[in-house]
Amino acid sequence: MRTQYPNVAADFARQLADRAHALRLLILRTHAAAGQGHLGSSLSIVEILVALMSSGIDTGHWAEGAPHGDRIVLSKGHAALAFYCALTQVGVVPQHALESFSRNGGELEPHPNEHTLPAVQASTGSLGQGLSIGLGLAFGSRMCGRDDSCFVILGDGELNEGQCWEAAIAAAQLQLGNLVAVVDANGFQQDGPMDEIMPIPGMAAAWRALGWETADVDGHDCSALLGTLAAVNAASTDRPKLIVARTVKGRGVPFLEHTTDSHFPPPLTEVEIAIVDQLVAKRSADVRW
């Protein structure tokens, strides 16, 4: 059962969908220019990133490495392409920096490296590590007399890693109500469908049993994601929050959606990107506001 929450105002919902559309196209073009990248999982987190970036999160000092403020940790670091594009969309990273994506020695590496790009909140790519870092950020903020939020984007495949569960247990024990984990539940990992490899049944139920506030939503509906964020935050101040976002790997590119091959596909041609542009625009127009 998906969690039902009232949508945000219709005009704002339309703005969010437009941002997601623009972000998706920017990802495709950046991927095409680089000639490589983890496209499928970048496309599945587009709406998650738009919702988080539109949730009132303070990105003001990200480029300076200031110790305080809200954070997003991209634990599924292979979706860095989408994260970089989202950072340019909100002005944290200049758009021309995207030209360095996946280039030899470029600052925008295939997996986020805060050493080369300080706007990245934590170096990731070795799966399973981001949630623990998020715990430290959330707990550390409270130790410093603040209550800055920390959002961690996880993959469902990443939940095969035991460290995620160590962190899940600890977050509840530490009562980290300022920690929000969003699982990009696209149902795939590199080698294929989760169901055929190592599924994680009942993610929300399992984490709820550990003491988390949980929700299960359409991960391609920005307004539903935003509404869910607001609802779980309102529900409890001392329980960490888990949002299971049901997504599609390769979302927006018909021949990549729900495929294992979407993980690291060859770049799309300009013609193909133009077709995706029209299809996504039509799909957005079909949404009832």
């Binding site: 909140q121 623990s132 870092i133 430290g136 950020l137 707990f139 550390g140 460290q163 160590e166 962190a167």
Partner: peptide
């Protein structure tokens, strides 16, 4: 593993 990652967050 979680302890080391947690410390990483604190240091940040």
């Amino acid at each position: 593993a979680n302890a080391v990652g947690f410390a990483s967050g604190l240091a940040r």
